[in-house]
Amino acid sequence: MKVSLFVTCLTDLFAPDVGMAVVKTLEHFGCSVDFPTAQTCCGQPAFNNGFPAEARALAVKMIDVFHDADYIVTPSGSCCAMIRDHYIELFHDDPDQRKLAEDFVARCYEYVEFLTKILKVDMTGLTLPKDEKFTYHFTCHLRGLGATGEPAIRLLKQLGGAQFTELEKSEQCCGFGGTFAIKYSDISGAMVRDKVECGVKTGAQTMIVNDGGCAMNIGGACHRMEAPFRVRHIAQVIAAAVEHTAGANVS
């Protein structure tokens, strides 16, 4: 299966290891992965701040960059929701471009969604390098994809050595919201502290997210508050299990 990675601007700059984890795990599950280098940003910040014309120009570019991709997979729930919820309506007055957008949207998947809906992977048989206690923060924008946190938790629980514990107020936004975190930093700060406090209560070593924005926000608050857990993208955990299991098989 041929997959093109949409890594997103945030992951490109701040979390190359998340991008690589997506590449390596998709390859492990039998995909051939390519990375179209002309990609930039989906336009979500512009759209959400009331600049649809600017978002539209970026959507045109995205659709063009990925025009021959079979599947487009992204580690970011919110970027995928931007594409799926808004790309078609952005071209309401341009039937040709709208058709291209519809075709593009139909090929776009968030990482966990792709693993569970298209690849229908099973993680049993994969083992983590060492036992780890996880909790899961529900990335709000998965709502826009009609998704719940259930598939990600199911995958996590399948990993050998993974212990799962429920996060209180798991579905309460961490307070990222793009420019919201800067413009309304007092409110956003109160929200992310709440998230970290709930994380601490779980006793987990790792909080799993599937969005780069949540990871930056909760991770940054964890560091400031010296919380005893770290924030990781689910792809990083799966990649660690893939690598460990492959290594164990070789030896």
């Binding site: 890594v7 992951t11 490109d12 700059l13 701040f14 979390a15 190359p16 290891d17 991008g19 690589m20 590449v23 990375f35 280098t37 975190a181 800067i182 413009k183 309304y184 930093s185 007092d186 956003s188 700060g189 992310v192 502290r193 930056m216 926000n217 991770g219 940054g220 608050a221 560091h223 400031r224």
Partner: peptide, 30 residues
């Protein structure tokens, strides 16, 4: 980690740290 971002992003670091980008971006690593 970054403890203090310059304006207009100072609000971020008023409440949490900001991750410093690694030396190489994804494109390079890939």
């Amino acid at each position: 980690w970054i403890k203090k971002l310059p304006p207009p992003a100072q609000g971020w670091t008023a409440h949490r740290d900001f991750p410093m980008p690694p030396k190489h971006d994804f494109r390079y690593v890939y």
